[in-house]
Design a binder for these strands. Structure first.
Lengths: 227, 227
DNA sequence: CTTGACATAAAACAACTGTTTGATACACTT
DNA sequence: AAGTGTATCAAACAGTTGTTTTATGTCAAG
């Protein structure tokens, strides 16, 4: 009985609404704990069969949702396009700052949390997240490290890279623990700028020392080694 | 009609079996996605009402399981009890090595994974995990840092501490991502000793530079700041 | 108008969710 | 011997799970 006004249901309008709603629910509760009826409700879709109609089943919806999420995240906060001769130290500072911004001020928080969940508890969709979202960031960082420490073996670059992103991710992935340890009133006062400065200076200090290898103590050995 | 042989069901034998089985299931699937019937099955308990009988409800079982898990983890891999005059640099190396061992060779893997899950997606039980398991480790690390960098403000000690454990945790919490980035054949070759050496030397290099503040580049400013 | 494709809708599916109930067995004290 | 408290068990509770089925509507092409 609808008049002409009732627009032709905008093609995959409901399909898109489903993906957006699924992003929220999957990000909050994970794949298994999320329920399709909850997703349908949040998408204002009355048709209980809609998910199976558009995506086949719940898992295919999840994968589509993750794919959509990381393309969104990528567009959000780009790295600066440094001028040709930019100092690699400053590039590293900017990298850390950008990374922390992506972690703490993502333009689509639920999309980002979904990716974090995929990193911590990987499913089939994890490979795509790494390929589309993580690897480009890793390439940028690898370039900066190559400038800072030219000629270092590839594996060492990976280790240093992990040291950097590990420092950044910790505040996000173990947010609750950090807050409980420091006390919430102190933790909440930490700003992105403050964290970025600490991590960048900490890292640059390490890199500087490593690039002038002037033995600052006995190496390794690991005292009470067991393998 | 059972003969005398059938031992009196060993008091809370089934109760203990339930907690162990719950540890497995909760660690693997999380609280919501885990099902009590699955737990009962793995515990070889036919009584469907057993969980409600012993623990009241599923959530109380979960909390008991987490409590049990971190007491188990604590006993596992202790820190060395350093002699009085031990060098703080070596203490830090040992700390990192012990931490990585706890991460990658826990004596009760499922118990440990349950705690990792609690850190990443905290529930009511997280506070206890921090209090019983995390805080003691943080105290050890804080003591070492106080020796290495005496007189530094408390907050700075926290930041450096987070930089250290962040590096360690990254390999565990984002294991899949690391493996995909490096390539599994390389990632799997990484040993605890190798990682511990890298992280300890990286950190000591940073600390050494920070303790001799001889300005190694302009500070902070963050190029294209947006708050 | 008819045909066929697309989209929505409601009802029903069997399987599973956490929890409760009532009955039964056993070991203990009175 | 009777009673008490503890433990097990099977059955059933009401509700939710993902998915399928059937029916109804809307649209453009033949």
């Amino acid at each position: 009985m609808a008049t002409k006004e009732s627009v032709p249901p905008a093609a995959d309008d409901t399909r898109d609404r489903l993906i957006l709603a699924a992003e929220e629910v999957f990000a909050a509760k994970g794949f298994e704990a999320a329920s399709v009826r909850d997703i349908l409700r949040r998408a204002n879709v009355k048709n209980i069969a809609a998910i199976n109609y558009y995506f086949g089943d719940k898992e295919r919806l999840y994968i589509e949702t993750v794919k959509n999420a990381h393309t969104c995240c990528n567009a959000g906060i780009p790295f600066p396009d440094w001028p040709a001769g930019a100092a690699p130290e400053q590039k590293l500072r900017d990298f850390v700052h950008t990374m922390l911004q992506r972690l703490f001020q993502p333009q689509r928080p639920t999309a980002f949390q979904l990716m974090l969940r995929e990193m911590a508890f990987p499913t089939k969709a994890c490979v795509e997240v790494v390929q589309e979202y993580i690897r480009p960031m890793a390439a940028v960082l690898a370039g900066i490290l190559e400038e800072l420490l030219p000629g270092l073996p590839r594996q060492k670059h990976f280790l240093i890279g992990f040291s950097i992103v590990g420092q950044c991710l910790h505040y996000r992935q173990n947010r609750a623990v950090c807050s409980l340890l420091m006390g919430p009133e102190i933790f909440d006062k930490l700003s992105i700028d403050m964290l970025a400065e600490h991590i960048a200076e900490f890292t640059l200090a390490a890199i500087q020392s490593l690039s002038h290898p002037k033995a600052h103590g006995r190496k390794s050995v690991g005292s009470r080694s067991r393998t």
